[in-house]
Amino acid sequence: MPVREHLDGVLITVRVAVSGHRGLAGETAALVDRAIREALAEYLPGLRGLSCLADGADQIFARAVLDLGGALEVVIPAERYRDGLPGECRAAYDELLGRARRAHRLEFVESTAESHMAASERMLDDADVLVAVWDGQPARGHGGTADVVAEARRRGMSVRVIWPEGARRG
Rank of each mutant, 00 (worst) to 15 (best):
M1Q: 08
M1C: 05
P2N: 13
V3W: 04
H6M: 13
D8H: 03
G9P: 10
G9R: 11
V10S: 02
V10N: 09
V10W: 12
V10Q: 04
L11G: 11
V14Y: 03
V14Q: 02
R15L: 14
R15N: 12
V16E: 01
V16K: 00
A17N: 08
V18C: 09
V18H: 05
S19K: 03
G20H: 02
G20M: 05
R22I: 10
G23L: 14
G23N: 08
G23H: 11
L24R: 06
A25R: 08
G26S: 01
E27S: 05
A30G: 08
L31R: 10
L31D: 10
V32C: 14
D33K: 04
D33H: 07
R34V: 15
A35N: 02
A35L: 05
I36T: 14
I36V: 13
R37M: 12
E38Q: 07
E38F: 01
A39C: 07
L40T: 03
A41D: 15
E42Y: 07
L44A: 06
L44P: 06
L44S: 05
L47G: 02
R48F: 10
G49L: 14
G49A: 12
C52D: 09
A54Q: 11
A57T: 05
A57H: 02
Q59L: 07
A62H: 03
R63L: 12
A64Q: 01
A64S: 07
L66M: 09
D67T: 14
G69M: 09
A71K: 14
L72W: 08
P77C: 14
E79F: 08
R80M: 08
Y81L: 12
R82Q: 15
R82K: 15
R82W: 08
G84W: 13
L85V: 08
L85S: 05
P86E: 11
G87I: 12
G87D: 06
E88W: 15
A91I: 11
A92V: 06
Y93W: 09
G98P: 06
A100E: 15
R101H: 09
H104G: 10
L106M: 13
V109Q: 08
E110N: 14
S111K: 06
A113Q: 14
S115R: 01
H116Y: 10
M117G: 04
A118C: 03
A118N: 05
A119P: 05
A119W: 02
R122S: 15
L124Q: 00
D126R: 09
D128H: 01
V129Y: 05
L130G: 04
V131D: 01
V131N: 10
D135Q: 02
D135E: 04
Q137G: 09
A139N: 00
A146T: 02
V148E: 06
E151M: 07
R154V: 06
R160G: 03
V161R: 04
W163N: 14
E165H: 15
E165R: 13
R168K: 08
R169Y: 13
